[in-house]
Every structure is written in C-alpha cells, then in structure tokens.
Design a binder for these strands. Sequence first.
RNA 1: GCCCCCAUCGUCUAGCGGUCCAGGACGCCGCCCUUUCAAGGCGGUAGCACGGGUUCGAACCCCGUUGGGGGCACCA
Length: 490
Amino acid sequence: MSATTRFCPSPTGLVHVGVLRTALFNWAHARHTGGTFVFRIEDTDAARDSEESYRHLLDCLRWLGLDWDEGPEVGGPHGPYRQSERHDIYREVAAKLLEARHAYESFSTPEEVEARRLAAGQDPKLGYDNADRDTTEAEKQAFRDAGRQPVLRLRMPDEDLSWTDLVRGEVRFAAGSVPDFVLVRGNGVPLYPFTNPVDDALMRVTDVLRGEDLLSSTPRQIALYRALTDIGVAQGTPRFGHLPLVMGEGSKKLSKRDPQSNFDVYRERGFLPEGLINYLALLGWSIADDRDVFSPQEMVEAFDVTRVSANPARFDLKKAEAINATHLRALPVEEFVDRVVPFLAGAGLVAEPPTAEQDRVLRAIAPLAQERMVVLSEAVNLLRFLFVDEVEIEAAAAEKQLAGESAVQVLDAATTALGELDGWSTAAIEAALKAALVDGLGLKPRLAFGPVRVAVSGRTVSPPLYESIELLGRERTLARLAAARGVAAG
RNA sequence: GCCCCCAUCGUCUAGCGGUCCAGGACGCCGCCCUUUCAAGGCGGUAGCACGGGUUCGAACCCCGUUGGGGGCACCA
C-alpha cells in the first residue's frame, strides 16, 4: 500500500544528523511503498528561522539524494510548502474549529494558571487547567475591553487517546492527562502543534515518522485530527511511527550543540552520500542478520518501518567511518577520481578540471590510494607529494626515518641506484632499490625503505613506494632524495 | 513531581516459544600477508539487567523491580 510521508524541518541553525536520519526513513518508506515523499518547511518561528538555513536544508537533502515529490522548488498540488506562506490557511481552519466549538478562546495568562495550580495545592508543572472552557460571552467581552487577547485552545476529548505506533505498537495516554493546548497565539500567530497536523491533513500525509521526542505530543495531534476530520479538513488520522532517538557520547540525546551532530562536518570530511545513508540507516534499522553494507537502492527495496528498532541508538563515528570506507573502496576508479578531485582542487593541488597530466597521475594512483582511505579529504595529505615540486617533510616523519645513522647510507645508495637506472618503470625501480638497499646494504626492508618513502612523500604513510616513484619521475625523485639527505645529514 | 518510551556483547543490531551453551558488524586483541601505513585473510574477546509468573519448554509472552531515555511553553 503506497504511503505519503513527509519531512518537515524548521530552518533553524545547523542541520542535525538525527534530523536527516528521520528524513531518510520517511523517504525510504515512501519509496519502498511506491508512495509520495513530501518536503515541507516549518518556518513559523520568524525569530529563529533563516533563509540561509532553509537553502542549506535543501542542499543537504539533494546531496544525500533524497528526492522529494512535492515541496520547495518542485511544487505540488498542496502548496505552498513553506508554512510562512500558509497563514491564510491556518486562519481559516482556526475559525472553523472555533465555530464548531472544537476550539475556544482562552484568556488566562500563564501567571494566572500557575497561581491557580498553586492555590489548589498542585504542581504548576501540570500546566493549563482547562479553566476557560466555559467562559461566557460577557466575560470574554470584559477581557477584551481590558485589552486582553485570547489564545485559541483545542478542547481535548474526555477519553483515553491511543494509537498503534508503527514501530512501538499500542501506545495509550489516559483521559485528562493532556490539557487543552494552544493552537493560535494571542497575537494571531499559529503554533507548531496546530500547523503541523493541518498541513499533514491538507497534504494527505498517511504515515508520520518522527523522533521519539515528539511521542508525548501525539495524543494532542490525534485529538486535533479528530476535530479536523469532523470539520472536513482532514480525511482521518494518519499512522504514526516514532523513531528511536540518536544519542551522542554518554547516554544523552545528541544535542544540536554537540559538534558530532553537525551534518556538515561529515560532508566536509569527505563522507560519501551513500556511505552516510548506509550508516544513518543502521541507526535503528538493519537489512539482514548477516550484512550491514548496502546501497540506497537496496535500502529502499528492503525497508520496512515496522521492523525499525525502538531502542535509542548511539552515533558511533568509528563504525560510520568503517561503513564509509567500504563504500569508498567499492567505487569504480573513474568515479573515485571524480569525487576526490574537488578535495584536491580545494587544497590547490590540481586544477578543476585537472590538466591532462594531473588526470594521468590521478588515474594511475587512484586504485592504490582508494584502498587506504576512509574519507575523501584524506586524499589531500596522501597524494599531495605527487602534485607539488618539493615536499615538505613532516617533522615526525623526519624524526622517525631520517634520524638514524643508516638513513644517509640508504639515501645515497638509492640515489645512485635510481640515477643509473635504465627504464623508469615500477618493476625496474623495485628491482634496483631492492638490489641496492636490501642486498647491497644488507638492511631489513623496513629499515631500507622507510627513509626513501619519507624522502619521496614527506610522510611515513603513502601509496605503494615503487609506483609512487615511477609517477613522480626521475628528476623529482632524485631532487627529493638529495633534499632528504640534507635533512638526514643534519 | 507527573506522563510516556526503552532494556541482547563496550557500540549498532539479528532473534518474532524449541533449530540459541544466542548470529552479524564496528571496536579491541592475536596470527598471516607485507616496502611504511592501510587494506585483505584467519582466529579470539565480550551480551540475553534482576525477580516473579505462564508453559513440557522462555532472550523471546505477562507482572513487578531496577536502570536508562524523552516530554511536560502563547519553541519546533
């Protein structure tokens, strides 16, 4: 049965990984059922919303490949898709609710409510006390004359509210445990608990998948849905599925302030969209008991909300990286090159697009680099030596490999061997170096090649040595050996 | 405080009454391969929170306890 799901973030500040996990599950559910994925922006809080954040949200979804059927820049039959452009709709629905007596005007101030609770010997945390349900017209007029503006509240039904949650099963809240809540502020601005169900109803959303942090507001939404159905705005109540929270280090909800929650850092570090999707999917869902690497397409085929776990999930960077590394290694070489170029270009190492020579080198080194990287940004340090004239030798690398007494010997022997070499090929280079260093100097391979690697790449970690030397060419190789010898000799 | 959710290796999970002295993945620890670092291969470490039921039989069902989490706005 095809489902209509939606993703409805508010454009405030940074994009949280948990928010995108929610987007992913909604998208996967819609796609799996051959349904519709709606993207709506909930910008009803002018004080916190920003245009920049709005643009960024669209960019994140597009980057991940979560395409929407209805929403900003795409349109659809139920637009507009930004709540800031839907105020007339809310005003109209609010009036109908008031007229049908599902909602009523409430003049109590928060201070008055608290005072009443205290006077009754009750905890003020109980919230609003439904005291204004039966305010008479005369009383209302008196308040108005005194300059007070009422909020609009929904009259909650006097019965238990329950639903069958898509991920948790039966959930029930006792009658009377949820007070009448505010739909529209005194100044006429509609609130989230009102606009969200109204839009879902109007956009014909059938399945609402959202974070568990919204679980306790579901009874209110269900009550609102009944009222909306009664006045003909909704066609019934959607199904709800409350997804497990994404936790940070320790055991608290991954905060928006936590740097680990910022989606941008993963993108900037060079995570692959498919790698991140794969890992995010694992936060509450699994494709099979013996497999956890899969493509977005495979996820769509297999996704079943009903099998989502109800347990909170901790975000594990190590695992995210491992999953991403697997996707990175599985990339066709040309694809890998395409994705790595923006990072190299960003560091000023290659042109964008690369020159013919840069392209040749990249294609040659790519398969060797690919299997020793976890994220794309690592290519910058791993491959820098191939795209510069002179390398800067890392201090730690120099200390480790060029400080020993054999380093000068090794570099001299390598210089001689490579300087006289006929035919600059990987095989010839390997044979020459082994003959000169391992056989000639009688050194263990580990000792023999360490200084050469540092001389050539500037680092202790690099792509395979002989191939790297071949790509570097004789001239630059000999120059680097000479430069390193200077360092080694002190 | 009140309401609600959750409970299998350190972490993410498989398990939907017997096929589980609990499977996979990440991490961690060995070994192999090896020109560094990785990758890869092989092996290992580690878990059903506790107590009662129900049942011939419980990781799976029920109740309770404990523990963890979330929510209690004229924010979203």
